[in-house]
Simulated assay, not measured.
Amino acid sequence: MILINYLIMCLVFGTTFLAIKIGIDAGAPPFFSAGLRFLLAGSILMLYMVVRRKARFSLLLHKEMLLTGAGLTFGVFATLYWAEQYLSSGIAAILSATAPLMILLLQTVIARQRLSLSSLAGCLTGTVGVVLLLLPGLTVTYSRIWVLGCAAVLLGQVFYSAGAVYSRRVVQRFQDTSPIALNAAQMMYGGGMLLVLSLFTEEIHMGAVLAPNAILSLLYLIIAGSMTGHTIFYWLIAKTNPVFPSTWLYISPLIALCLGAVLYDEPVSVLSVVGGITIIIGIVVVNLNNLRSFVFKSKHAGKEIRKTI
């Protein structure tokens, strides 16, 4: 079940960078679009959980929901949506792939967890793979606003990393609460903060907001990106650790490359293939300890079954 959900999450998140770009290019204000996306997605999920009596609105009164929303939603997507006005979705994906490494460093410094050499090597390998994957198709015009856009995405990954590490504690504290409800609550807070930011920084033109591409982008990001992808992400954090779910950031450029080749006849170079293989190797190395533990538990369970028989 963990592997299936992980693959679904990778597929969904692998398309969100392009979906964001499509909406922004259609003229939708970035902060307003991001805020509307997460507030609506979070509200729908929360209402669904309350109706099914698996959550209460009182969950929103806990400061942990506000802090998680500030990290996983507000800080990440305020910077990403703004930056994609000036960056390609491919470059944004590359810069976002630094998050697993940042998570490992934060766990070492803040959570006082020991950083294994295999995890560090895996993150570095995956990062190299992402660069190799998209290097043939990258065309960069160096300018001040481009540099600021890159810096904004990297800043967003600091928020993302802090939110991912902190959310692990939140999940442990609210063990009796569904990860879906926790995800909904943090999205509501993050979306609300994004809308407040939009109120003070953007002019909203309904013609641009209601443009067909902007509407399609928003609907896809609400249903697939937020309600599905982020819920699975939160569930995986609860079942594994903050690093494993975040390795989707290595898969997303690979998915974008494959979709481009299949749907738009975009060329695939040898360097891109090498980059894709490097990404997979990086993911395996990052999760080497988890894989060993899984294999050991499987063997142990098999022995116990044979003894019972």
Rank of each mutant, 00 (worst) to 15 (best):
Y81S: 13
W82E: 11
W82L: 11
W82T: 04
W82K: 11
A83M: 08
A83C: 10
E84T: 04
Q85H: 11
Y86A: 09
Y86Q: 10
Y86H: 15
L87C: 08
S88K: 09
S88Y: 10
S88E: 12
S89M: 08
S89L: 04
G90S: 13
G90R: 11
I91G: 08
I91H: 11
A92M: 02
A92V: 15
A92E: 13
A92D: 14
A92R: 04
A93E: 02
A93G: 10
I94W: 10
I94S: 01
I94D: 06
A97D: 01
A97I: 02
A97M: 02
T98I: 10
A99S: 05
P100M: 13
P100D: 02
P100I: 01
P100W: 00
L101Q: 04
I103T: 09
I103V: 15
L104E: 00
L104A: 11
L105M: 07
L105R: 05
L106A: 13
L106K: 05
Q107G: 15
Q107V: 06
T108I: 04
T108W: 15
V109Q: 05
I110W: 15
I110L: 15
I110V: 14
I110K: 09
I110R: 13
I110G: 04
A111Q: 06
R112N: 11
Q113M: 11
R114W: 09
R114E: 13
S116I: 08
S116R: 13
S116V: 07
L117V: 15
S118N: 12
L120N: 11
A121K: 04
G122Q: 00
G122H: 01
